[in-house]
C-alpha cells in the first residue's frame, strides 16, 4: 500500500514533464499567431513582442471561415451521431447476441478498418458522382460514416464484450425485447465508450481534409479544415495567419473535449464502483 503510494509520487514527475510537452505546442502556436509575418521570418523562435489579434481576424475573414465553421459543425455532428447509433447497435449485436454469421459479419466490418482512404478514393468519388451525392452534405456525411464506422463497431464490440452476459440474460428473462435491452441497458452502460469514440470520431471528421476536398468540389460547401489548410497557400510564408487558423479550428475541439472528458471520467468511476 505505502509502496504503491510512493510509486504514485514518483511517476508524477515524468507525467508532469509530459504534460508540459503537450501544452507547449499550443502555446507555441499561440505565440506564432501573435507575431507579424515579418517578425516570424526574422526570428522563428522568439517570443512575440505584443499580444496581437489581427491575424486571428484576418484568418477568420479571409476565406469564408464563418460559413465553413457552420458546415463543419453540421457535418461532424450528424456524422458522429450516426456513427454512435450504428456502431453501438452493431457492437451490441456482435458482442452479446449469438446468431448465425456473426463472426463473419464482424470480420467484414473489421476488414473495412484496414482500407486506407486513398485506395478507395477514386472509385468512391465515382460512386458518389453516379448517385448524385457528390457535393452534397449527405454525401460527405455518408463518406465519413463509412470511413469511421469500422473503427466504431470494433470499439463498441470490444467494449460490450467486457459487460457480463448475465446482465443481458437477466433482462431477457424479465421479458425485455432485444431492442429494449439495447436501449435501456446497452446504451447507458456504453456511455464511457460512446463518449470516447464520439470524441475521437468528431476529431477525425473535424480534422479531415482529403475526404472533404474530394467529396465537396464547390467552394461554399467546404469545411473548416480546408479553409485552414488553404491559408497555407502554395508557398505562402504567412505562417502567423496559418497558426491563427489552426487555433480557430483547435479551440472548439479542445473545449468540447474538456467538457466531455469529465463525463468520461464519471462514467469510468461509475463503472468501476459498480464492480
Amino acid at each position: 500500500m505505502s509502496r504503491l503510494r510512493l510509486g504514485r509520487w514518483l511517476v508524477a514527475i515524468p507525467m508532469s514533464l509530459l504534460a508540459l510537452a503537450t501544452i507547449y505546442p499550443l502555446l507555441f502556436t499561440a505565440n506564432v499567431a501573435m507575431k507579424t509575418r515579418r517578425d516570424y521570418i526574422l526570428d522563428r523562435f522568439g517570443l512575440t513582442d505584443a499580444l496581437r489579434f489581427e491575424n486571428i481576424s484576418t484568418a477568420w475573414n479571409s476565406v469564408g471561415m464563418g460559413r465553413y465553421f457552420i458546415n463543419s459543425l453540421f457535418v461532424v455532428t450528424v456524422s458522429v451521431l450516426l456513427l454512435l447509433l450504428f456502431g453501438s447497435m452493431a457492437g451490441f449485436a456482435l458482442s452479446q447476441l449469438r446468431f448465425r454469421g456473426s463472426s463473419a459479419l464482424f470480420l467484414g466490418c473489421l476488414a473495412g478498418l484496414f482500407i486506407p482512404f486513398q485506395v478507395i478514393m477514386v472509385p468512391l468519388a465515382r460512386i458518389m458522382a453516379d448517385t448524385a451525392l457528390i457535393d452534397t452534405y449527405p454525401g460527405l456525411i455518408l463518406v465519413y460514416v463509412a470511413q469511421f464506422l469500422p473503427f466504431t463497431v470494433f470499439l463498441m464490440t470490444s467494449y460490450y464484450k467486457g459487460i457480463p452476459p448475465e446482465i443481458v440474460d437477466a433482462a431477457r428473462i424479465d421479458g425485455s425485447t432485444v431492442y429494449g435491452v439495447y436501449r435501456r441497458i446497452m446504451l447507458p452502460l456504453g456511455t464511457p465508450a460512446l463518449l470516447s469514440v464520439g470524441i475521437l470520431n468528431a476529431l477525425f471528421c473535424w480534422n479531415d481534409v482529403l475526404m472533404a476536398l474530394v467529396m465537396m468540389p464547390s467552394a461554399d460547401h467546404r469545411t473548416l479544415m480546408i479553409g485552414v489548410t488553404s491559408l497555407r497557400g502554395q508557398y505562402s510564408d504567412n505562417i502567423p495567419t496559418f497558426a491563427s487558423g489552426v487555433l480557430i479550428a483547435a479551440i472548439p475541439v479542445l473545449l468540447v473535449y474538456l467538457f466531455l472528458q469529465r463525463q468520461i471520467a464519471d462514467g469510468v468511476a461509475a463503472g468501476s464502483t459498480k464492480g
Binding site: 477514386v122 465515382r126 457528390i134 482529403l210 476536398l213 474530394v214 489548410t229 488553404s230 497557400g233 502554395q234
Partner: peptide, 24 residues
C-alpha cells in the same frame, strides 16, 4: 466560379477528377 484548392492536394484532386471524368 473559382474554386481554390490547397496546393498540397491539387494534383491529387485533379487526378481524381480526371479519372472520374467530372471536373472543372
Amino acid at each position: 466560379e473559382f474554386v481554390a484548392q490547397p496546393f498540397d492536394q491539387y494534383y491529387t484532386l485533379l487526378g481524381a477528377a480526371i479519372q472520374s471524368g467530372k471536373g472543372p
